[in-house]
Each structure stands twice: as C-alpha cells, then as structure tokens.
C-alpha cells in the first residue's frame, strides 16, 4: 500500500519517517586532531554511549577559539531538534546556523552562551520564556528569531534545542508558511566559540584547549511538502523525495509538466492538494496553467492543452479542428475521432464542413454530406460552377 493514497485510491498527505538526518553524513570540521584517530566521521556514526567514538579538534592555544562543524544534509529537511553530545567539557558559547540553499547563505537557529549580549549581541532568554511581545502578530510576520540562552545546567554533556523553543503554543506547521520556512534546512553549521571555565581568556595565548564531540544529531523529516512518504537516492546519488500526487522536484515542490490543471500546493492533514492532470482527451502531451481560467471556473480547473494532435482543437482538445468533423461512431479520446471533411471539389462551396455533423456547404441543387450528388429535381450539368441544374 502507498501511504500517499487511501484505500479508495484518493490522494492523502504523506510524510517521510522521522530520522536523524545527520546519520552517516560527512561533517566538515575546520579543525581536526591531526593524529587522525578522532576524525569528523565520528560525529555522525551513531555510536552508543557505552563505546562512544569522538571527534576532536586540534589543541587550540590562541584566541579566537572558534571551531566550525558544517553538516550538509543533502537536501531540504524539516527539523525538529539539533543536539550535540560532547566528549569534552561543554563549551560556554556555541552557535547553530542553518542554510536553505546548500551552504550559499546562512541564518542563525540558536545561540548558547552565559554572556549572550557580549558574545552574540543578543538578549539572553531562558527557554520557555516568552518573548517581549509574544503573540502571533508579533512573531509570525517576520518569522521566528534565533534565541540565545545559557546552556542548560542539568543536561550534562548534551547541548540540544528544539525548533519549537520560544514559539507561541498552538503554532501549526500546516497553516504557517513562516514556520515551514523556519524549520527548513539543507545544511547545519555549529560554531563552537568559547570554551568553558578559566581557559576562556580573552586575547593572546590561552591554556591548551580541545573541543570534542561524540555525536551531532539533527532530528527531522525529509522535506517533501506532504507529497512523498520517503526519500531515495536519484540516479546521481542525490537524496530526493519519491514524489506522488503528480508532483516532482527534490522536495516535490512543483507539479509535473502535464499536471497543471490547478496550482501547486503543499498537502495538509485535511487536503492532499494533489496536482491534477490536464484534461486533454488523450490528444495532447503538454498543457499550461491559466490563472484567469482557473478563477473563472471557481478555482477548479485552469489547464489549457497545448498542441492538440489527431486533428483536435480547443482547451481540452475536445472538438475537431477546421476541415475536420467529429466521427460520432468513435469516442472522443480515439485517435481517429476527427475525420477529414472530404468536401466534393465541385459540388461543395468550400472545404470546411460543420465540425460536429460533417456537413459540407453545398452549391445550389447539390446535396449529400460531402455535396457529391444532385438534389432531387436537379441533374448534373457540364458546368463546374453550377454542377446541378433544375430539370426542365
């Protein structure tokens, strides 16, 4: 069974399973212990607490004591949490950033510091504490902001945060494009900035210090906008959604070329918003979306078929083009549903017949569907201009 369709075959929202998006992915560390016995690969190997493998930075002796860990997720994910399990003492200050464009630009997700204002220029706020104007109106229009708080004292070697931290309760991802944007990331970057304790001397030489992390976890779901239940590797080995509902793209973020009868939309719990195929009666392979027609139809159908074949024409290739007429013995989708008019070269006054009945326009005294006979009371003349004349 396909989770993207119900038992009756109707589309329904489907989402990939919750995973640790960091698992097995390669982390780029700006500093790694040169002995190679504590590589960055140990950050994402899901080693258990009992035999935890740890990445270690070089031994740092001068400020600034910044070390950066960059984790490409391979594609967009919708994040739920980020966590770092330290093998060394947890640093006093750390910042977590996200990228939504595969590392070209970065924006902050969260800061941890005992001195938020001095280190990051941000007010310190305990998790769960509401922002100054905690309301939908104040937060949602410009999007959630990265919080800065002291590392929680009781979490031991763990530094973790939820993407929901600091947001007003009752926020619904389905109905909030701002929240959808907030939780979306293609890459995560952690900047460890300030060791804990007396080593945190400002300027010049400091006591040797090593950052060491056993596990970097990024909990979330592969982002498919409700149109795929799993992500798979494509032919080039890139992670992409296994799109359903007539969608395509790495995140199922657009309709497939022929599925443009209505605009693309993200699926919600109540409505799958599947992309619909254009209705072209089997006579066109391409169509385009027309917003004006969509509005006029009561937001039901806006697809316009392109390049109708088999001598058909119209928005849905639903009638016959000029010079052809509908053969009522065949269904509209038949490739020979439209027959050539075949108007008689002498008896007909033109080459174009009625597109529905096939009746050619006949000269005076001529009859028949193709105007190939003289009407009763008329007989054939020798003149091609007036082929039938009244019988005297």
């Amino acid at each position: 069974t396909d989770p993207c369709y119900d038992e009756a075959g109707a589309p329904q929202r489907c989402i990939p399973e919750f995973v640790n998006a960091a698992l097995g992915r390669e982390v780029q560390a700006s500093s790694t212990d040169p002995r190679q016995t504590h590589p960055a690969a140990f950050l994402t190997d899901a080693s258990a607490a009992a035999d935890r493998t740890c990445w270690r930075s070089e031994t740092l002796t001068r400020t600034p004591l910044n070390v950066t860990l960059t984790l490409p997720l391979g594609k967009a994910f919708e994040l739920v949490y980020v966590s770092l399990h330290f093998c060394s003492a947890r640093p006093d200050s750390a910042a977590v950033f996200k990228s939504q464009d595969h590392g070209r630009s970065w924006s902050p997700l969260r800061f941890f510091s005992s001195q938020c204002s001095r280190v990051y220029g941000r007010p310190s706020r305990a998790v769960g504490q509401a922002p100054a104007q905690a309301s939908l109106g104040s937060i949602v229009p410009r999007g959630p902001e990265a919080l800065c708080s002291e590392p929680p004292p009781r979490t031991g070697p763990l530094l973790a945060f939820s993407m929901q931290d600091g947001l007003p309760p009752g926020q619904d991802l389905d109905s909030s494009p701002v929240l959808q944007d907030w939780v979306t990331a293609t890459d995560i970057r952690v900047v460890l900035t300030r060791p804990v304790g007396p080593r945190a001397t400002e300027g010049g030489v400091v006591a040797p210090y090593v950052y060491s992390v056993g596990e970097l976890q990024v909990g979330g779901r592969c982002k498919c906008n409700g149109h795929a239940s799993r992500c798979v590797a494509d032919t080039q080995g890139r992670l992409v959604c296994d799109c359903r509902h007539g969608t395509e793209g790495p995140d199922c973020e657009r309709c497939k070329p022929f599925y443009c009868d209505r605009p693309w939309q993200r699926a919600t719990a109540h409505e799958a918003h599947a992309c619909l195929a254009c209705s072209c009666n089997g006579h066109a392979r391409r169509c385009r979306f027309n917003m004006e027609l969509y509005r006029l139809s009561g937001r039901r159908s806006g697809g316009v078929c392109l390049n109708c074949r088999h001598n058909t024409a119209g928005r849905h290739c639903h009638y016959c083009r000029e010079g052809f007429y509908r053969d009522q013995t065949r269904v509209l989708s038949h490739r020979r549903a439209c027959k050539a008019c075949d108007c008689h070269p002498v008896g007909a006054a033109g080459k174009t017949c009625n597109q529905t009945t096939g009746q050619c326009p006949c000269k005076d005294g001529v009859t028949g569907l193709t105007c190939n006979r003289c009407a009763p009371g008329f007989q054939q003349s020798r003149s091609p201009v007036a082929p039938c004349v009244k019988i005297p």
């Binding site: 002498v346 190939n372 006979r373 009763p376 054939q380 003149s383 091609p384 082929p387």
Partner: peptide, 23 residues
C-alpha cells in the same frame, strides 16, 4: 431515390481551367 454521384468526366473545364481540381 439515391441520386448518382457527380461524374467528374462530364464537366467541361474549358472556361474554368483555373478551378479544375487535381483528379
């Protein structure tokens, strides 16, 4: 009664060469 179809051979195209269809 079904009338016979127009017989193209009976037409005189002398004055209408330019209207004559390919036959």
């Amino acid at each position: 009664d079904v009338m016979p179809t127009l017989d193209m051979a009976l037409f005189d195209w002398t004055d209408y060469e330019d209207l004559k269809p390919d036959m």
